[in-house]
Design a protein around this nucleic acid. Structure first.
Lengths: 146, 146
DNA sequence: GACAAAGTGGACCTTGGAAGTCTATATTAT
DNA sequence: ATAATATAGACTTCCAAGGTCCACTTTGTC
């Protein structure tokens, strides 16, 4: 039960975009640098975010990315499910009998189902706006050392 | 964010033990068969549960396992942490700056920390007693088909 | 029109962990 | 003595996470 870096990086990227003037276009390299994300890696994540309709991409010189919606309207749950997979604690919660033939008589299934709902509810209430950071992590870090 | 089979199997094994007359000794093979757990696999899991003090083992002929405590006193959280690892959603929640140098200025850390606490609290309140099943999954399955 | 600066799409690599299987050994009840 | 059992650990297979890189296309700017 752990959250991968894709989600971490996606949240960083989105919160950085959210901290910029609305509509401003930011390049992948800029995001990577300000947020301490490994070179190139972000390109795969942004692809998912574009496909999921969370950000807009702008091809060509001076291109980059911008939020497709106000940051208040992007929840962490949505981000998670866009860059990773549907929030599922155990395969059986999704696939049922197909995955585990004991599903129908399983007594622990509801426990994990409850946990999953707890998590989903909470993450559905936190938005990118709640963690936006204009300077990026690197900027905040140097500021805090000054 | 998903729970591995080790946890699933451990919960099945413990809940099966909990469904037996107190103190009765059950062999690994019996548990595996009744609970639909792959042969041999359970031996590694039981090792952890013994080391963690959740079950007692009895070596030798007619040996096997029995719960070390009343099933009400064994929480799923404890089982999870015994057979897998401490319940940690993101590495940084455990290791701090050591893991991620932006930790001190990270704005999403508290979100994952909250989720983690939600989950830990919930799992700490559910006990093996709550999901005990005397017949084992296989037994329940055939009974439900009768 | 040429050029540079971007995203797009996809190939590729490495590493580690999950899941599962098996065997030799020590221990114990009968 | 024998059979049944846990113990310890080796071993394999498979796959996903994380990361790196490049050929191609698109587009702004001079």
């Amino acid at each position: 039960m752990n959250v991968g870096r894709r989600v971490d990086y996606a949240v960083r990227a989105l919160s950085y975009l959210a901290g910029q003037p609305p509509g401003k276009i930011i390049s992948r390299v800029d995001i990577e640098e300000k947020q301490g994300i490994p070179s190139y890696y972000l390109s795969k994540i942004m692809k998912d975010l574009v496909a999921g309709g969370l950000v807009h991409s702008h091809i060509g010189s001076k291109g980059g990315f911008s939020l497709a919606r106000p940051p208040q309207a992007i929840t962490i749950k949505e981000v998670y499910e866009t860059v990773e997979r549907p929030l599922t604690l155990m395969e059986c919660l999704d696939k049922g009998e197909q995955y585990c033939s004991y599903c129908g008589v399983c007594t622990q299934r509801s426990v994990w189902n409850n946990v999953q709902n707890l998590v989903a509810d909470y993450l559905g209430k936190v938005s990118i706006h709640d963690i936006a950071e204009p300077q990026g992590l690197k900027g905040r870090l140097s500021a805090s050392r000054a």
